[in-house]
């Protein structure tokens, strides 16, 4: 085996498929054994480096999930995930967007029905931390548009989430600085969340169902007239009251003319 491409593909397989794999057997033949260490022991150093680094990246992104299941369970679950859905970007912060979906199908975690949504929340949090910065709405410019239709722009650093479980409370009680009641009633009903960044301050805000509907409609970047029409006929959401509140809270950061080219 002298071809570099083949050797690298074998290395990849040997790292992910484990010490007893066929790839490891084949790669071992290309590794110099030393007095103290077998070829397999040399490969193991790299395997531990790769898997350890990726597991640490997951632990950094999903600290509450890890706190909920314990370090050993989390590491074992991560080992399965890393092999099933490898990283496809040189940017490690883009690793694991599908961790929550993976957990949904991970048998040993099946009793923890709320765990996938906790992972989803943590992924949103992680993304928002690195998301595009937004300015504040230009009221003067808005006042000048008269009765023209506009498309309102929510902050890029914002994500909506709906869950059957009070995952925001699960998240809160697992923060290092949290003080207070530690028991969470998992049966208290569905919740709507708006996770966003106010400047550089991370926020996790429960919202009402009406607020969630309006945020969802605005997120679709429809002209405001359509948003009003849709929500008035389907849901009777009080858009005229809610929108100024959204602006005041910093959730709406810009607008464009709906009929702009």
């Amino acid at each position: 085996m002298t071809n570099l491409r083949d050797q690298q593909l074998l290395f990849l397989e040997a790292v992910f498929n484990g010490p007893d794999s066929e790839a490891e057997q084949m790669l071992s033949q290309a590794i110099v054994e030393t007095d103290k260490m077998s070829a397999k022991a040399h490969i193991e150093i790299y395997r531990n480096g790769v898997l350890g680094g990726l597991t640490q990246a997951l632990a950094d992104t999903y600290p509450v999930c890890m706190a909920l299941v314990g370090e050993d369970f989390f590491n074992a679950m991560s080992a399965h995930f890393i092999r099933q859905l490898p990283s496809e970007s040189p940017d490690l912060s883009e690793f694991s967007p599908l961790f929550s979906e993976f957990i949904e199908g991970f048998g040993p975690a099946s009793e923890l029905l709320y765990l996938p949504d906790v992972a989803r929340l943590e992924w949103h949090w992680h993304q928002i931390f690195h998301e595009t910065d937004c300015g504040t709405l230009d009221f003067k410019k808005l006042a000048e548009i008269g009765d023209q239709d506009v498309i309102f722009q929510l902050v890029d650093a914002g994500r909506l989430m709906h869950s059957q479980w009070p995952v925001h409370k699960v998240w809160q009680v697992n923060q290092a600085e949290y003080e207070g009641e530690e028991n969470v009633d998992l049966d208290e009903g569905e919740i709507f969340l708006w996770i966003w960044r106010n400047g550089y301050e991370m926020r996790l805000d429960p919202v009402t169902e009406d607020e969630w509907k309006l945020l969802s409609a605005l997120r679709e970047q429809k002209p405001f007239s359509q948003v009003c029409e849709q929500l008035a006929s389907d849901d009777e959401v009080d858009v005229i009251t809610l929108l100024p509140q959204f602006v005041e809270r910093g959730w709406v950061c810009d607008f464009s003319l709906a009929d702009a080219p």
Partner: peptide, 24 residues
């Protein structure tokens, strides 16, 4: 190298010290 077949291992992996690897 840290990647092959578009899979990233995010750890520095070794090259054989060959002319092929040096040229690459």
């Amino acid at each position: 190298w840290i990647s092959v077949a578009h899979q990233y291992m995010h750890d520095l992996l070794p090259l054989p010290y060959t002319i092929e690897a040096q040229d690459l």
